[in-house]
């Protein structure tokens, strides 16, 4: 019984250490400067950091296929950027507070396009 408890505790310790090593700041400076951060769900951010927040130019890659390349402000997608959807669709244009806000072009994977003003992710007709 003691051996089993020891084995469980030892396994938990090894797992925690392995997980801790595979996440967090993997390269560079993730406080002030340029660095790469890996999240527990395998989302990665590589780019500029200011005061431990994503700020400036960077690329965020989600494990399910979303890729955002562009400007970040206070860790949010803000400024000019391009979002690649998993199926090949893209939105290129202005962002604010993590949403399509401002002028931008949405291109579907079949090539169809829609350009105009966007507000909180919705196209303004």
């Amino acid at each position: 019984m003691k051996k089993l408890i020891f084995f469980i505790l030892f396994s938990s310790l090894i797992t925690s250490l392995a997980l801790a090593r595979s996440t967090g700041c993997k390269e560079g400076n993730c406080e002030n400067g340029y660095g790469k951060w890996v999240y527990t769900d395998k989302t990665t951010y590589e780019g500029e950091w200011v005061a431990t927040k994503k700020h400036g130019q960077g690329t965020e890659t989600w494990p399910n296929g979303y890729i955002y390349k562009g400007e970040f402000k206070e860790s949010q997608w803000s400024g000019i950027g391009i979002l690649f959807f998993p199926d090949g669709s893209t939105y290129e244009g202005e962002w604010a507070n993590g949403f399509m806000n401002g002028k931008g072009t949405f291109t579907w994977s079949d090539g169809k396009q829609k350009t105009g003003i966007w507000k909180n992710g919705s196209f303004q007709e």
């Binding site: 989600w62 399910n64 979303y66 959807f85 992710g121 919705s122």
Partner: peptide, 17 residues
């Protein structure tokens, strides 16, 4: 449906987000 899929779908639905 994991969280990332939900967050992705929320991009196009601000109220849901």
């Amino acid at each position: 449906i994991p969280q990332r899929a939900i967050m992705g779908a929320n991009f196009l639905n601000f109220r849901a987000h």
